[in-house]
Amino acid sequence: MASRFPSMSQTRPDIPILEAQDLAIAYSGQTILQQVNLQIYPRQITGLIGPSGCGKSSLLRCFNRLLDFVPSAKVTGTIRLAGQDLCAIPDTIVRRRIGMVFQQPNPFPKSVYDNIALGLRVNGCRQDIDDIVEQVLRQVGLWQEVKVDLNKNAMLLSGGQQQRLCIARTIALQPDIILMDEPCASLDPVSADRISSLLSEMKQHYTIVMVTHDLRQAARITDRLAFFNVIPEGDRLVGQLVEYDETPKIFGSPSSSATWSYIHHGHLSI
């Protein structure tokens, strides 16, 4: 299996690793997001911004096929992971290769060690797991805090530590892409700041796609930004990708006035 679905971590920076083409998402027949064309480049942080309800989180869940578990959701269009159609890859393989971190830290009610080791074991890693656990904990800056007792229950960690543990268990699988759904939104400012610094340093090794409402954070750490907005269609609002470009351009001279007013005035033009 491993050879049939090779990891693409060595791809060239100018070739997109993930591509969405004419993507649309509908819940119970009602379209909530349409006409998304988006390329994610490796070793960059791509931010998805826009008002609540425009379908950013749903889009993120499309990328690792987590939306498959919502029976009423229907996705049309194609997504390619390193040139390969996402639907042609078994869903468990997709999710191993595209990791995800949620808004609310969700460590398993197990020890710190098991939180990381379990994913490795389940996916069939036969290497020295102790070593990998230590390295990923170092990488997220948690090693100093938890090395005394790796058997401590992860639920006893603080929110910020839990979130870093969730990042650690994700990168232990060495995913091609890490999806993050507002990873700092439920944390206090100090913890959130640490996560932000961590992310900006992580991008040397990983490709990150994150949904965020924190424009300051977006300006600080993202390389590219995609702005989504809701557009009236009939009597309902449908999400759409308005603009996608490098972060300085989005902040400095966006081509759409809607982007400008959202970013600089916190104002939505529908």
Binding site: A2, L120, D128, Q135, Q139, G141, L173, Q174, E201
Partner: peptide, 13 residues
Amino acid sequence: IAPDITVPSVVFR
């Protein structure tokens, strides 16, 4: 935070 450390490459069998 010390993200410079590289994780040994993991192979899944």
